[in-house]
């Protein structure tokens, strides 16, 4: 997509960041969720409240953290609490508006696998990192957003393992306390659940992407919303802010001292 003047990663991050607003309380996963959330904070949502599972509430990092517990998160936070407290008082009690997660694989109902791929549980082909905070973030937040790149390895018909719950066909809402996953943002477009079947359906394409491309990158028979939208082009300000954020991050993390 070089001719568009931005990359598919950039439009994905920017499209996600636009969904955050001032006053939202967002429990942020590391990686793309953190990039999108901090981009939003630098642009249209300076008062979005970012919570990281290391116990930092209201963190305002100037560069993207490499780990979920970087020192800058603590230094810039409104409060730093223990790990049991962050999960019990803040997440489990329902104080989080948006749980913002990445994933290794999802299915059409927004269930997430970050545990094993292939083989059996005891003898997997690929051992992934595991759950982290996601099983409870996915079910205790008022809603969940998922961001990941879309291809046939990541968008699968059937997951080998459900680490964190999405929707269940025929059991709308199930035991999830909030609304569950409400949006999946990818490098190709945006998917939202069909209100009746809860199946994730293509509801927007990023500029220059076709429905055929999105279908070819999906392991299930992708349905398309009646009114398919096109993601508005990134603005110059958005692109500049995102690139500046990455440049600052690169400079900060690349120059860490090797002296202990």
């Amino acid at each position: 997509m070089a001719e568009l003047g931005y990359t598919s990663n950039e439009i994905m991050t920017i499209a996600a960041s636009r969904r955050l607003a001032d006053g939202m309380v967002c429990f942020v996963g590391i990686g793309m969720p953190s990039a999108a959330a901090n981009l939003a904070r630098s642009l249209h949502a300076p008062e979005v409240v970012l919570i990281y599972e290391s116990g930092t509430i209201g963190a305002r990092p100037t560069v993207l953290p490499l780990s979920i517990g970087d020192g800058e998160l603590a230094e810039t936070a409104d409060a730093v609490v223990s790990v049991p407290e962050i999960f019990r008082y803040w997440l489990q009690a329902g104080r989080v508006d948006v749980g913002f997660l990445g994933a290794a694989q999802i299915d059409k109902y927004g269930n997430i696998n970050t545990t094993v791929i292939g083989g059996t549980y005891d003898s997997p082909q690929v051992r992934l990192p595991g759950a982290g905070g996601a099983p409870e973030i996915a079910t205790a937040s008022k809603e969940t957003w998922i961001i990941l790149k879309q291809n046939k390895r990541t968008f699968v018909e059937k997951l080998h393992f459900v680490t964190s719950a999405g929707h269940r066909p025929g059991a709308h809402g199930s035991a999830i306390r909030g609304r569950g996953p409400t949006v999946v943002i990818t490098d190709l477009g945006v998917l939202t659940p069909d209100p009746e079947t809860m199946e994730f359906t293509l509801s927007a394409l990023h500029p220059g992407v076709t429905v055929e491309q999105a279908r070819a990158a999906t392991g299930w028979e992708l349905k398309v919303a009646l009114h398919l939208e096109i993601t508005p082009e990134p603005t110059a300000a958005e692109l500049a802010a995102l690139r500046d954020l990455y440049a600052r991050t690169e400079a900060a993390h690349g120059s860490a001292s090797t002296e202990g």
């Binding site: 049991p84 999960f87 099983p135 409870e136 680490t163 719950a165």
Partner: peptide, 25 residues
């Protein structure tokens, strides 16, 4: 895990949490 450590620190045999809803774990 956080709840299990808390239970251990509290001298309780187990921890309670609203966890693993819909998970295979």
């Amino acid at each position: 895990m956080a709840a299990r450590y808390q239970a251990g620190a509290s001298g309780l045999p187990f921890a309670v949490l609203r966890g693993y809803v819909g998970s295979d774990i």
